[in-house]
Design a protein around this nucleic acid. Sequence first.
DNA 1: GCGCTTGTTTTGAGTCATTCAAAAGAACTG
DNA 2: CAGTTCTTTTGAATGACTCAAAACAAGCGC
Lengths: 146, 146
Amino acid sequence: MTTDEIRAAAAEHLRSAGLRVTEPRLAVLEAVTGNGHLDADTVHTRVAVGHPGISLQSVYNVLGDLSAAELLRRIEPAGSPALFESRIGDNHHHIVCTRCSAVADVDCIVGQAPCLAPSDASGFVVHTAEVTFWGLCASCQQEAGV
Amino acid sequence: MTTDEIRAAAAEHLRSAGLRVTEPRLAVLEAVTGNGHLDADTVHTRVAVGHPGISLQSVYNVLGDLSAAELLRRIEPAGSPALFESRIGDNHHHIVCTRCSAVADVDCIVGQAPCLAPSDASGFVVHTAEVTFWGLCASCQQEAGV
DNA sequence: GCGCTTGTTTTGAGTCATTCAAAAGAACTG
DNA sequence: CAGTTCTTTTGAATGACTCAAAACAAGCGC
């Protein structure tokens, strides 16, 4: 997708979510779309390139609003700050490197969310199953093998 | 298990993990054993009943040491502080209430860790699969239903 | 049992990620 | 284009946790 296509689609999504179309929101969506798993600070740095005055606080606000509206997905692997990604709508999972904290997507193993059902849910009604795989990424395997 | 049994077993475990047997460590193990999923602050409060001078910092140290030695397990559900539990050795999973953050254990669905394998691991070597179910606990279902 | 060594705990400060609140500003409605 | 309401900024504050140095104590050897 080009920048313009992302922004046009984003504006539409914002409107149908009942959110106003603002420059910070478009810029954040653009910064995250197709760029993997980014924390708030990284998003801020990226957005600041084209929008020098934007505050970190605004980035937090926008990321929160967009996640609540399900235009972004928020994940919080243990030991990392919250990460945001543009891939939504499928309940895919993540694999995290225990050495360098790199994150990659993993397709959902079993169909749609919750994709797994607990054998005994202790009286809970289950909505989703979140799976996080832990391991070593390719480059850390090399460095650790040395 | 009685308090004395817990402490005797704990002392043994500490020794075989190469850790010195100290009162704070025994007290923390005792506080966590069989008491579900506790955060550092709660552990501190509980331990302080019998050990009025103990510092929160020590509780953090001890919890860190015991987790590293695998005498306790540490989980970090999104939105909660780190929680510690005494059930170790099996790769069981957790279900968290999205409304009140209550946590319950869920038996591992598929045998031993990693218990699930990603279809495509993007070059990662996978060690474990951590599954977190999200839903509503029994009492929140009632309150939310009203 | 008594020091000694080394691991542990305390004390005190500091960090990071994030949230709260009030004031200033800008989208959308009519 | 004016008004309302939502957004953004500014500035401060919080919670959870870590770092570092000094005081202390477990367990070894004598």
